[in-house]
């Protein structure tokens, strides 16, 4: 089984049998999974912040860090595998964006991340099929390319599949 760890701000794309993409704990970050079941291809990006602003060096090295640069980077990575689908043909799953309790002001990062990702996905005509965001538990995700299943992993707790 080939398994790729997709770190903060990184993008990963895999095709074929026995392939798995995985993030570390997301915290307030968001994982966007784009799946193409017919070709058994999956793309994953681990987004940390809502907007890139003028962070030029980080955009170049880790475009997946920001919602506004992550989605184009993920679509570009999928296109490089030879896929040429209309955006509506992809299955999109969204996970993460946990929030601290009694959040206020600047500490609303999980919610701000989710809102930004939803908006950027809509701008690219990518429709969210399943979303597990918010809440107060940090999760990691594992994407099983074969089955298009996404496993939500919580430390020492039961996992959940979407």
């Amino acid at each position: 089984m080939k398994e790729i760890i997709v770190g903060i701000g990184e993008t990963g794309v895999l095709s074929g049998e026995g392939k798995v993409l995985q993030t570390g704990p997301l915290g307030a970050g968001v994982a966007v999974v784009v799946l193409d079941a017919p070709s058994r291809t999956a793309g994953l990006v681990h987004i940390a912040l809502p907007a890139s602003k003028s962070e030029t060096d980080k955009i170049e090295s880790y475009p997946g860090t920001f919602a506004d640069t992550a989605i184009p980077a993920l679509m570009e990575a999928l296109a490089q595998t030879g896929l040429s689908r209309d955006p509506e043909e992809y299955t999109v799953k969204l996970v993460g964006g946990a929030n601290v309790m009694d959040r206020s002001g600047a500490f609303d990062l999980g919610a701000r991340n989710v809102e930004a990702v939803r908006r950027i996905l809509a701008e690219h005509n990518l429709q969210i099929e399943t979303e597990k965001t918010g809440g107060r538990f940090s999760r990691s995700v594992k994407v099983y390319v074969d089955s298009s299943l996404v496993e939500l992993i919580f430390p020492s707790r039961d996992t959940e599949f979407i």
């Binding site: 903060i8 570390g24 704990p25 997301l26 915290g27 307030a28 970050g29 940390a48 946990a98 929030n99 601290v100 309790m101 009694d102 959040r103 206020s104 002001g105 500490f107 990062l109 999980g110 107060r136 538990f137 940090s138 919580f154 430390p155 020492s156 707790r157």
Partner: peptide
């Protein structure tokens, strides 16, 4: 401490289940 947990650097099942002092 809150920012570390928000960044995904927690210490297990308790992250990010804490109250922020507003």
């Amino acid at each position: 401490d809150m920012m570390a947990m928000m960044g995904g650097y927690g210490t297990g099942s308790d992250a990010i289940l804490y109250s922020l002092d507003g």
